[in-house]
Nucleic acid binder design. Structure first.
Length: 607
RNA sequence: GACCCCGUAGCUCAGCCGGAUAGAGCACCAGCCUUCUAAGCUGGGGGUCGCAGGUUCGAAUCCUGCCGGGGUCGCCA
C-alpha cells in the first residue's frame, strides 16, 4: 500500500543519504582493500599498483584485487600467504559477504547486496551527477580539436575529430578538470592566399565575367560562389581593376570570415562546441611577432640553430635545394631529424607558428594539452611534443590523439567521391541525411586510432545491429516503464518530478533476481568507466559500456514476456514494483548521463 | 630507406595501469516464441590473439626483430 511506503520513507531516508555517499563503489572498495593491506603490512609499502576490478569470470565474485601478487615480493611473503592475511582482514568489512583466495594469489570478493543497493541509490539520488568526480583536481587542460582550415566546408574526417574532441572535453569536464575547448584557426598561411585568389575568381564571375575552368592550384568548390557574390555586392567592380596587393587583404578577410561561418554552422549541426577560437594571424599581428620571438627565445636556449638538412628519402623531391636554414633541434627530444622553421622565401613554416601557438597555450597556464589531429598529421607528433617540452622547459605535456580515416559506405558499398570536381561529400550532407546522433555515436563507437567504416544505410536502421538505435531505444523503453506504471498504478508517485524522492527509498533488497543484480552491478560500474575513459582519453569506452548496459536491459525486459513475475510492474505488489522501478531509474540515469557525455540525445520515446 | 597506426572467431570489432579457462554483435547450427513498445529469446559450434624471441610468478597487453595492410616523410596545413 502507498501508505506503508510513505512511512517507510521516513525510516530509511537517513541511510539512503549515507549510502548515496559512496558514488564510486570500485574506488570505495579500493580504499577498503588498501586499508586491509596496511593493517597487514604497515603503511610503508607502496600500494600504487594495487587495483580493484571486476573479474573476467563472474563466478569468481564481484571484485578482485591483485594486492597480494604485486606486494608479495616487497613483503617477502608468498603471494597466497599474503593473500590469506589480507583476506582475513577484508572478511570483517561490512560491505563484504565472502572472500576467497584463488589462482596465483587473487583475492576475490563477493559483496553484500547493500553494496549494490548503495550504488543504485547513489545513481538515483545524484541523477545526472552520478559518475561525476574530482579526480581532475581542477587542473587546467586545453583540448584543441577540429582546427580545420577555413578554406571550405568540413568533410567527414573533420567530423570525426570534432566529435571525438568534443566528447573527450566533456568527459574531462565531468571528471573534474578545468577544460578549455579550443579551435586553432589557420588564417595566416599561404593556403589562405590561395583561398583569396579563388574567391577573387568567383568575384569576377559574380560580376558577369566568364571565368572558364578553375585553374589548378586554386580551390574549385562551388561554395566560394557565395563569397564572390558577397564581394561583388559589397565592392561592386572596384576591386577588379586594382593590383592584387590591394585586393588580397580585403578578399582574404571576407573569405576567411565567411568560411568560418560555414564551419561554425557545420559544428553547430553536430552540436560540437568550442570556447576559444584562436587565430594564427593574431600571433603575428599588431607588430608583436610572437613566432619570431619564440624562435629567438629557443635560439638563446640552444634549441634553434642555422644548419643544413639531408634531402628526404623515399619519394624524390624534384626541386630540392640544399641550403642553410633555421632549424629546431627536435632530435634532442627523440625526433628523427631537426625541423625547419623558415621557408626558402623567408616566411615561417606552419611548424614555426604552431610552436608559438603552443607556447601561447603554455603562457596561458596550460600544462596539460591535448591535440586532436587527423591521421595524415601523424608524422608531426614527435616534433610538436618536442616543441612543447622546449617552450615549457619540460613543464608541459602534450598528448596528441590521432583520429583515423572515415570510410563512407552505403549498404556496404563505398560512397564515391570525386575530389577534383570539388564536390566531395561534406560533413553537413551526412549529418543532414542520417542525423546528428547517429554521426556522433558511430564516430565514438570505435577507438580513435582505428579506421572507421561509416555506413549511411546501417546507422539509421532500427535494429540491434545499429548501436545508436539500440542504446537510445534502451533509454526510451526504460522511460516507457514509467509511463506504464503511471497508467497502471496511479497511486505510485513516479512522475518526472516526484520520482527520485520516492524511488530513492524503495525497498531495494527486493531486487534479487540474478539479472536484476547484474544490472545493479552494471550501474555501479559507470563511475569507474567514466574515470578510466577520461584518464585514458578514450571516449569510446563509454559508448561500448552503454551498448552493454542497454543489451542487458533489453534482455531482462524480454524475460518478462515468459516470466510475468519478473516484470517491472507488478499490480498487486507496490513494494516490489517500487524496487524495480528504482532499478529502471538507475538505468535511465546512467544511459542519459552517458549519452550526454557523448553529445547524443536520450529520447524519452521513439515512435 | 625512416617513422606512425593497424593485425584478436567466417565478417565487423571490444579487451581498462600485465592477471585467472580471450569476449560482444553479425553470420552459422539446434530448440523455443509471437510481443509489459517496435531489438525476437535461449543454448551451441567456431581463436596458434600475424610470426619468432625477451622481460615477468603471470603477456592479446610491455620490449626487440621479422611478415602483412594503411598513412606520412624540407620549402602544404
Amino acid at each position: 500500500m502507498p501508505g506503508s511506503l510513505t512511512r517507510r520513507r521516513n525510516c530509511v531516508s537517513r541511510s539512503a543519504i549515507m549510502e548515496a555517499h559512496s558514488r564510486n563503489l570500485f574506488a570505495d572498495m579500493l580504499v577498503r582493500v588498501r586499508t586491509a593491506t596496511t593493517a597487514v603490512l604497515g603503511d610503508a609499502v607502496d600500494q600504487s599498483r594495487v587495483v580493484v576490478e571486476p573479474p573476467r569470470d563472474p563466478s569468481h565474485g564481484d571484485m578482485a584485487t591483485n594486492a597480494a601478487m604485486v606486494l608479495a615480493k616487497d613483503a617477502g611473503k608468498k603471494p597466497r600467504e599474503l593473500a590469506d592475511a589480507i583476506a582475513k582482514k577484508l572478511r570483517a568489512d561490512p560491505l563484504v559477504e565472502k572472500v576467497d583466495v584463488a589462482g596465483p594469489g587473487f583475492i576475490n570478493m563477493t559483496l553484500k547486496p547493500r553494496a549494490w543497493i548503495g550504488a543504485l541509490r547513489a545513481a538515483i539520488v545524484t541523477g545526472q551527477n552520478y559518475g561525476r568526480s574530482d579526480i581532475g583536481k581542477r587542473e587546467k587542460v586545453n583540448v584543441e580539436y577540429v582546427s580545420a582550415n577555413p578554406t571550405g566546408p568540413m568533410h567527414v574526417g573533420h567530423g570525426r575529430g570534432a566529435v571525438f574532441g568534443d566528447a573527450l572535453a566533456s568527459l574531462l569536464d565531468f571528471t573534474g578538470f578545468d577544460v578549455t575547448r579550443e579551435y586553432y584557426v589557420n588564417d595566416a598561411g599561404a593556403q589562405i592566399d590561395v583561398l583569396a585568389r579563388s574567391a577573387f575568381l568567383r568575384y569576377r564571375e559574380a560580376l558577369g565575367e566568364n571565368i572558364g575552368a578553375i585553374p589548378d592550384g586554386l580551390y574549385p568548390g562551388e561554395y566560394l560562389k557565395s563569397v564572390g557574390e558577397a564581394l561583388a555586392k559589397a565592392h561592386g567592380a572596384t576591386l577588379k581593376e586594382r593590383p592584387e596587393a590591394d585586393w588580397l587583404p580585403v578578399v582574404r578577410s571576407t573569405a576567411v570570415e565567411m568560411m568560418l561561418d560555414v564551419i561554425r554552422d557545420d559544428l553547430a549541426a553536430l552540436n560540437v562546441k568550442h570556447s576559444v577560437f584562436f587565430s594564427e594571424r593574431s600571433l603575428i599581428e599588431g607588430g608583436a611577432d610572437q613566432v619570431g620571438a619564440t624562435i629567438v627565445a629557443l635560439r638563446a636556449s640552444g634549441e634553434v640553430y642555422e644548419g643544413r638538412l639531408p634531402p628526404p628519402k623515399g619519394a624524390p623531391v624534384e626541386d630540392w635545394e640544399d641550403r642553410e636554414q633555421t632549424l629546431f633541434r627536435s632530435t634532442d627530444f627523440g625526433d628523427d631529424v631537426d625541423r625547419p622553421l623558415k621557408k626558402s622565401d623567408g616566411s615561417y613554416t606552419y611548424f614555426a607558428s604552431d610552436i608559438a601557438y603552443h607556447k601561447a597555450k603554455y603562457d596561458r597556464g596550460f600544462h596539460n594539452m591535448i591535440d586532436v589531429w587527423g591521421a595524415d598529421h601523424g608524422g608531426y607528433i614527435k616534433r610538436m611534443q618536442a616543441a612543447v617540452k622546449a617552450v615549457s622547459g619540460g613543464k608541459a605535456a602534450l598528448d596528441v590523439k590521432v583520429v583515423q580515416l572515415v570510410r563512407l559506405l552505403r549498404a556496404g558499398e563505398p560512397v564515391k567521391m570525386s575530389k577534383r570536381a570539388g564536390d566531395f561529400v561534406t560533413l553537413r550532407e551526412v549529418v543532414d541525411e542520417v542525423g546528428r546522433d547517429a554521426v556522433r555515436f558511430m564516430m565514438l563507437y570505435r577507438k580513435n586510432d582505428a579506421v572507421l567504416d561509416f555506413d549511411l544505410a546501417k546507422v539509421i536502421e532500427q535494429s540491434r545491429d545499429n548501436p545508436v538505435f539500440y542504446v537510445q531505444y534502451g533509454h526510451a523503453r526504460a522511460q516507457s516503464v514509467f509511463r506504464n506504471a503511471r497508467a497502471e498504478m496511479p497511486s505510485l508517485p513516479v512522475g518526472e518530478g516526484n520520482r527520485v524522492a520516492f524511488l530513492a527509498e524503495a525497498p531495494l533488497e527486493r531486487l534479487n533476481d540474478p539479472m536484476e543484480l547484474a544490472l545493479m552491478r552494471k550501474v555501479a560500474a559507470f563511475p569507474r568507466q567514466v574515470e578510466s575513459a577520461a584518464l585514458a582519453h578514450e571516449p569510446h569506452r563509454i559508448a561500448f559500456y552503454l551498448y552493454e548496459l542497454a543489451s542487458e536491459f533489453h534482455a531482462h525486459w524480454t524475460r518478462g514476456k515468459d516470466l510475468p513475475h519478473l516484470r517491472f510492474i507488478i499490480q498487486n505488489d507496490p513494494e516490489t514494483t517500487a524496487a524495480r522501478l528504482a532499478l529502471v531509474q538507475g538505468i535511465v540515469t546512467v544511459i542519459a548521463s552517458g549519452l550526454t557525455l557523448l553529445g547524443v540525445e536520450a529520447p524519452a520515446e521513439m515512435r
